[in-house]
Every structure is written in structure tokens, then in C-alpha cells.
């Protein structure tokens, strides 16, 4: 081994390689937060952040005002009372609004109902976005009680110029016989 002094240091290479091993082990775990950040930023994997949802509603078109009317009715044979808190609101496209709908169950039985919406003119239904609505779920209501049910919505700023009035109507149906387990559980709780 006459050439031994001219050889590079083994330990230096070993140290670097071991550091790489440790680093790559850590990188494997770092992939977990990286993956989440990447999916949040790009929206890949079906993830949409609050930021993106909010961004759609940010631009409020204050130059225009649209009249949104609310109509309610109950299906034939349905004993509930059901009406909007206000009959209409005037809003700018892009502006978010909450409207309460009042329901009362005058019967002596716990009941479950579901509201089915409809929008007129049909063209406007593409631009009316509900962020939250009582119509998304079945609504339980105990015997001889009443409730206020919120509906949050905004109009897409892209709504065509010629639409000045949008009518949103709800029909309330008795779903007691066809209730979902969730709704049944909700109504079972306070009675017992």
C-alpha cells in the first residue's frame, strides 16, 4: 500500500453517504406535509381551500342590483306552516346574503320534512349559488314547535345583464315515512 498517503479519506465519504441516508429517511416523512401543501395549493386530489371558495365571491359588482324573491308553499296535505322571514332582498351580484325561513309544526307528532327548491327564470339557476341551505338536508321538527332555518347564498357576478329579478321557490314535503337515519336520530334525541 505504497500509495496509501495519496488516497482520499474514507470516513469523509462515509460520513456524507450516511448523511444522505438520514436525509432521505427524513425526506420520506417530509413528503407527508409536502403532499398536503401541494394538494392544497393546486387543488389536486379534490381539495379546495377556503381561500379559493372565498375568491369566487370576492368580486362584488356594485353597479348592478338584482331583486331576489322568495316563495314558499307546502305540499298538499302537509300541515306545516312555512314562510320566508322577508319576501324579497335586493343584492349586488357577488354579495353573500343570509335569509331565514320560518317553519312550525302544529301537529301533535314529531315530523320530518324536506324542502325542494326551484329557480325562475331557469337561466338564473346557473348563477344562484347556495353556500348553505336547509334544503340540503331533511329537517326534523318536534310536535307543536317552530324553528328558523337559514339559507346563505350569492349570485355569480357573471349573471347575464338582462336578469333583474330571480325567484326562488321552495315546496315543503312530508318525509316522516321516508326519513334518513340522520334525521330520525336528530328527532329521537329531544323527545326521549
Amino acid at each position: 500500500m505504497a500509495e496509501q498517503p495519496t488516497k482520499p479519506d474514507n470516513t469523509r465519504i462515509i460520513r456524507r453517504l450516511l448523511l444522505t441516508v438520514v436525509g432521505m429517511f427524513a425526506f420520506g416523512f417530509a413528503l407527508v406535509p409536502l403532499y398536503n401543501v401541494f394538494c392544497d395549493i393546486t387543488g389536486f386530489n379534490g381539495r379546495f381551500t377556503d381561500g379559493q371558495a372565498a375568491a369566487n365571491t370576492r368580486s362584488v359588482d356594485t353597479n348592478r342590483t338584482v331583486n331576489v324573491q322568495f316563495i314558499t308553499r307546502v305540499n298538499k296535505g302537509m300541515p306545516w306552516g312555512f314562510e320566508p322571514e322577508v319576501s324579497s332582498v335586493r343584492i349586488h351580484p357577488g354579495e353573500t346574503k343570509v335569509v331565514n325561513f320560518l317553519a312550525n309544526n302544529p301537529t301533535g307528532q314529531n315530523m320530518i320534512a324536506q324542502a325542494i327548491p326551484s329557480v325562475a327564470p331557469g337561466e338564473a339557476s346557473l348563477y344562484l349559488n347556495k353556500v348553505e341551505c336547509f334544503c340540503f338536508n331533511q329537517q326534523p321538527l318536534a310536535a307543536e314547535s317552530k324553528t328558523a332555518m337559514p339559507m346563505q347564498f350569492y349570485l355569480d357576478p357573471d349573471i347575464p345583464e338582462h336578469i333583474h329579478t330571480v325567484t326562488l321557490s321552495y315546496t315543503m314535503y312530508d318525509m316522516t315515512e321516508n326519513a334518513t337515519p340522520d334525521a330520525l336520530a336528530a328527532i329521537a334525541q329531544p323527545v326521549n
Binding site: 438520514v22 429517511f25 425526506f27 420520506g28 416523512f29 407527508v32
Partner: peptide, 25 residues
Amino acid sequence: LIAVMPVLAGAVTMVLTDKYFGTSF
């Protein structure tokens, strides 16, 4: 090998902790 075997080690470790130690990777 130096670059990817540690990543495999990380993956099996995550499987281990998910199965036995209540993590949710």
C-alpha cells in the same frame, strides 16, 4: 440505493405506526 432505500424504510415505518401506534399517515 442510498437515495431510495431510506424512503422505503420511512414508508414501512409509517405503516407500522399507523397500524400499531394510532397515527394516521
